[in-house]
Computed example of a mutant assay.
Amino acid sequence: MEEYALTRRDHSRQKQSEESCERVRRQVDEDVAKCRADPARAERRRQAFENVAKLMQSFKKQDHEIMRWRVRLYCGHIIETEAHYTYTDPIDAGGYSKRCPECGKDGLTIVAFEPIGLRGEPPEPTEPTPPPPPKKPTRAELERRVKALEEENEHLRAELSG
């Protein structure tokens, strides 16, 4: 990953990321201005963020569910990032745009990556033994059951007729 050469696609994705970051910054600035002008709106926004934070905490994942990735950012620096193990790569996991802790640039795209491994070892399986499959009745048992049902049927018909 250290010798990775940027491609046209990398440059294009980085440009799109920068443009997207700029649009988001403008939207955030507009929203902040609206919240400053309207305290009720600011309180609703604060409450919404608080609710989202609580919700995110409720989805805490176990260490064995988190994959660690070594990623190279557009700026050339290599960092580690994490994502749920079900994602095939850190870009699909929403990690396509990062802030570099080394140079401080924001909105950097991931241009290369490699998995490091899970954050923790999966627990030993503790599968309970499955219940034994139901025993198939023997022919004699089935014949007795049929005979009993036929007798019950005859008894019910006699009650209804008479």
Rank of each mutant, 00 (worst) to 15 (best):
S97A: 14
K98C: 06
I91K: 08
G94K: 06
Y85L: 12
K98V: 00
P101M: 04
L108T: 02
G94Q: 08
G107T: 04
E80N: 13
D89Y: 02
R70F: 02
S97C: 09
L108M: 11
I91H: 03
I91R: 12
G76P: 10
H77Y: 13
G104F: 04
A83G: 02
L108K: 07
I110S: 00
R72F: 02
E80P: 10
Y96M: 02
R99A: 14
T81C: 15
Y85R: 13
T88L: 13
A83S: 15
T81L: 08
T86D: 11
E102Y: 15
R72T: 07
G107Y: 03
K105H: 10
P101K: 07
A93M: 07
Y87N: 11
E102Q: 14
V111G: 01
H77G: 09
G104P: 01
D89N: 15
G76Q: 10
G95Q: 12
Y87G: 02
P101T: 05
L73W: 04
K98I: 00
G95M: 10
E82D: 10
R72V: 03
P101Y: 05
I91E: 03
E102T: 15
Y74T: 00
I79V: 15
H84K: 11
E82N: 10
Y96C: 03
I79N: 10
G76R: 05
Y87R: 00
C100L: 08
R72D: 01
I110M: 00
T88N: 14
E82I: 08
D89T: 05
E80R: 13
R70W: 00
E102A: 11
L73V: 05
I91T: 15
T88S: 12
V71I: 15
C100M: 11
G104W: 02
G95C: 12
V111C: 07
T86E: 14
V71G: 02
V111Y: 01
S97H: 03
